[in-house]
Design a protein around this nucleic acid. Sequence first.
DNA 1: TAAATCAATTGTAGCGCTACAAATGCAGAA
DNA 2: TTCTGCATTTGTAGCGCTACAATTGATTTA
Lengths: 352, 352
Amino acid sequence: MSKLSGEKTSVTMQSVAAAAGVSPMTVSNTFRYPERVQEETRQKVLRIAAELGYVPNYAAGNLASGQSRVIGAVIPSIKNSSFYNYVRGMQDAVASEGYELILKLADTQRNETAAIETFVGLRVAGIALVGDEHEEQALRLMRKTGVPVVEAWVQDAPFDMAVGFSTYEATRALVDLLLESGRRHIGFIGYAGAASRRFKQRMPAFRERLAAYGLRSDLVHLVDETDGFGAGPKALEGLFRLDPDLDALLCPTDIVAAGVVFECGRRGWRVPEQIAVVGWGDYEIASEITPALTTLQPNTYQMGQAAMRMIVERVKGDESAGKIMDTGFEVLRRDSVSWTSEPMRGISTVTA
Amino acid sequence: MSKLSGEKTSVTMQSVAAAAGVSPMTVSNTFRYPERVQEETRQKVLRIAAELGYVPNYAAGNLASGQSRVIGAVIPSIKNSSFYNYVRGMQDAVASEGYELILKLADTQRNETAAIETFVGLRVAGIALVGDEHEEQALRLMRKTGVPVVEAWVQDAPFDMAVGFSTYEATRALVDLLLESGRRHIGFIGYAGAASRRFKQRMPAFRERLAAYGLRSDLVHLVDETDGFGAGPKALEGLFRLDPDLDALLCPTDIVAAGVVFECGRRGWRVPEQIAVVGWGDYEIASEITPALTTLQPNTYQMGQAAMRMIVERVKGDESAGKIMDTGFEVLRRDSVSWTSEPMRGISTVTA
DNA sequence: TAAATCAATTGTAGCGCTACAAATGCAGAA
DNA sequence: TTCTGCATTTGTAGCGCTACAATTGATTTA
């Protein structure tokens, strides 16, 4: 008797088999390979199993077969909504493949490693991570066990497989949009400290693009990732001091952008007329504040789906090591950028 | 050889034992009951295990012992931030107890049942749910297996154990706050449809309290839970039509409240002078918009902690069935309610 | 009619680990 | 010196399930 269930008796495959008058293997097959079992037999087994309240023990199945139908995903945060669609995409994809998704939250690399250890300990079928910065210990572990790993929000040099979009291209598209709208004094808000690669490629893209058009590319202000809305006011202050003619702002997230918009309101600056504001991430707030935020929408739902599919295909035997999928992005043009002034010549906006 | 690991060889307890020149049981004890193993032996085993890259197989351990160090939590949503601190509390609590927390997302009761089935299949040590409305199938399953279950945001009649706060008391405290601030035409925004019990007790509390002071208690408007910010404008429109003297609004979440504030801005109505707005949940946006929202802050971090502790204690053998913990709440007074007019006589605000 | 074929079912072994009881070895007591 | 008590270590059995090979029995083919 299982200790887990305390005084309750536990229903095993054995007991179901006995009650149904078949062998344990027939019960096993009924659940794992229904097509191997005759319709009539299968119905009987299912009925008895339901009556007895049988719940397959995944731990035992996993141990016996060396296989698992559980995939683990590590999510850096649920504080903001940017991972909502990513998780939904994963959920929907695994459901249609007959797998299960379990999540672990890890806000630091240390915790990510712990989460990976748990998943490996559970012998999951695959692991989905966000970003490409992991502790050496985590890398060793994944390398050693050979568990399929997908990194989301990653475009190059994956540990195993990756799915993402080019933040370089995306930033370029946003800068081009601002140039097209007639802005010439464009500020950039970046994250200071150990912010992940997800943010790293943006600043170079920003600088190169502006430099290419002979414009100031040094209007950069770094804020703390944990500041949330509060980062907006700080950055606005800092950038305005660098260039009083500041007429556009590229923000690292819609949250920061919303903070900027609120602060502009407090200062009586009109958005978008005086200052155009561009967010990143298509958070819910982006479409709800006034003016609605022009922002970058990564196809995170598709990213989640793709991540799960890659793992399932690998399990099925595809030789997919090193595979990278690009799920693209879209620039959502909304009211926080206006097209009133003369566009920069030679600019044409890329939107996907 | 495990099929999971493909062509890599898998390191088992056996191989560690052989390499360290001890029996498998000593390796097992080293990990599970370190105090049973001599310091010297333990160090050697740990060193060898690290060198070989050994990762304990939880599935096997679970099967052999009937115990698990993994606790599963079902979260209804990560779309908004209200569960952030709840999850953090759970994480911190399990970490200090030597357990692991895994999450599953379930936005419907159907999905919740599926999540519970997965957790039961994995033979987790306990399950944390949100709310007290579950499918019959889920209840049967939990009853049958006897797995420890904690319901969060629940105050009475738990399935097994519960942790929460009184939404009745909380609503009363908010109504009293508005009465104290001098409001007399208070509107209530509720959720229509199958919104959970988390919302159900609020309307009666609202009505009773207003009725007790001889004020209108029928200024109620129901909105769709999925509307987000958009619910604000709809409700404002509906309630204003019921009573043009409307001077305060109780919202089901800070998101809806923010929607109301934004809409007031569009209509040129001043908050809080013309209309006081009260939110619920202490979302990040509540302190960032202008005016900052007066809102109700449930101690969700403490709720998460308490939930995990209850499960761990149950596993340790405490007879804790039916246990209920109250983690309380706080009313955060901010700018969206002002104290300009004469207070209702006899009112004194309760804040925890 | 006998042999071959095939779908459906079954027995056996073992996945990696831990509970439990048994064995070992060593200090101090008699 | 032998015995007892104790900390430490070790065999053994088995958790619940599935891979795989073997078996059964009905149907088809020669």
